[in-house]
Design a protein around this nucleic acid. Structure first.
Lengths: 98, 98
DNA sequence: CTGGCGATTAGCATTTTTGCTAATTAGCAG
DNA sequence: CTGCTAATTAGCAAAAATGCTAATCGCCAG
């Protein structure tokens, strides 16, 4: 679960996909067009992201619309912040507490 | 170099090392003792973390003391939050793509 | 039904990561 | 120096990730 998220984030192309989805949902082909990699390669990157629940896919007739799943991204960021030394001992924290 | 950070975070054992370092610096052997993996394996995980600048090593006579580098961890968390398309509040970061 | 487009799946080769044992380095004590 | 402990590096094999081309699936127009 959490593991697949960080694994998914490990590849630059996949992080870039998330960056592209930041401004809003986009079609698979639209995303693939912006990469050097072949279409099937991008398709697999998208599958990895979907597997990690970082994005969701929605069919729109002929094409497929992807959108970012912000809550999972937030959880990951939270987990990282939780790794930063505080006096408490829980590895799951919800608030950035700034 | 963001890339090496996320790559380093991709392995559960390495995230667990960071968790252990959260409460304070620890000796390499002390860390290795808490894992099932062999000592050399842990040594390499530590090397990966050090490569990503997520931890720093300091010799203490016979042993080596590791401590977490919170700023890099913060940067990574920031990068993740930056991937979220929310336009309220904190938006200060360099990009995580590439 | 057929053709075409969007996208994924299959299958394969290459590279990277992981994890082990054995060998080595580094420091300290005598 | 020798011996001992702490930790890393070397070298290898197994597993996983990456990326390609070719084949396939899903959907819609005609």
């Amino acid at each position: 679960m959490e593991n697949s998220v960080f694994k998914a984030l490990a590849h630059p192309a996949r992080r870039q996909v998330l960056t592209m989805l930041r401004k809003g949902p986009r079609l698979a082909g639209d995303l693939a067009a912006e990469f050097e990699a072949s279409w099937p390669t991008m398709s697999r990157h998208l599958a990895v992201l979907k597997d990690a629940d970082l994005i969701t896919a929605e069919r729109q007739g002929n094409q497929i619309l992807y959108r970012v799943n912000t809550s999972v991204l937030e959880d990951a960021a939270s987990a990282l912040l939780g790794l930063i030394g505080r006096d408490e001992g829980d590895d799951q924290l919800k608030e950035a507490a700034e």
